[in-house]
Computed example of a mutant assay.
Amino acid sequence: MTATENGPAGCATCAELLRAAAAAERAGDFSKAVDCRVLLRRHQPQHNRTHNDPRRNGR
């Protein structure tokens, strides 16, 4: 997984959650890896609101 698959390429939150999930998997902490993926999924709708909300786009 990469940040571009799960949100805007420049999103630091997406990148950090993906990095933490990968590190947790490498360490064998699959519970933490799943927690990171859940947080990533909960975070993603913010991208759609930010990009599709006319009040935030100045339209």
Score class of each variant (00 low, 15 high):
1 M>A: 09
1 M>N: 00
2 T>G: 01
2 T>N: 05
3 A>G: 15
4 T>C: 07
5 E>C: 08
5 E>L: 10
5 E>A: 12
6 N>M: 08
6 N>H: 12
7 G>S: 08
7 G>P: 00
8 P>Y: 06
8 P>A: 08
9 A>E: 09
9 A>C: 03
10 G>W: 04
11 C>P: 04
11 C>M: 00
12 A>G: 11
12 A>S: 12
13 T>L: 06
13 T>E: 09
14 C>I: 00
15 A>F: 00
16 E>V: 03
16 E>I: 00
16 E>D: 10
18 L>S: 01
18 L>I: 15
18 L>P: 01
18 L>C: 06
19 R>C: 06
19 R>F: 09
20 A>D: 11
21 A>C: 10
21 A>S: 15
22 A>Q: 13
22 A>W: 07
22 A>I: 05
23 A>S: 14
23 A>G: 10
23 A>N: 13
24 A>V: 05
24 A>N: 02
24 A>L: 01
25 E>Q: 08
25 E>G: 02
27 A>K: 10
27 A>Y: 07
27 A>N: 05
28 G>H: 07
29 D>M: 04
29 D>L: 07
30 F>L: 06
31 S>R: 15
32 K>V: 05
32 K>Y: 03
32 K>G: 02
33 A>E: 04
34 V>N: 07
34 V>K: 11
34 V>R: 12
34 V>G: 04
35 D>V: 04
35 D>A: 11
35 D>R: 10
36 C>T: 02
38 V>Y: 04
39 L>M: 07
40 L>E: 01
40 L>F: 02
40 L>Y: 01
41 R>D: 00
41 R>G: 01
42 R>S: 09
43 H>Q: 09
43 H>P: 09
43 H>N: 11
44 Q>M: 12
44 Q>V: 10
45 P>R: 06
45 P>A: 01
46 Q>G: 15
47 H>K: 11
47 H>M: 14
48 N>M: 09
48 N>G: 06
49 R>A: 14
49 R>I: 13
49 R>H: 13
50 T>Y: 15
50 T>I: 14
50 T>W: 12
50 T>F: 14
51 H>P: 04
51 H>T: 13
51 H>R: 15
52 N>P: 05
53 D>V: 10
53 D>T: 12
53 D>E: 14
53 D>W: 12
54 P>S: 10
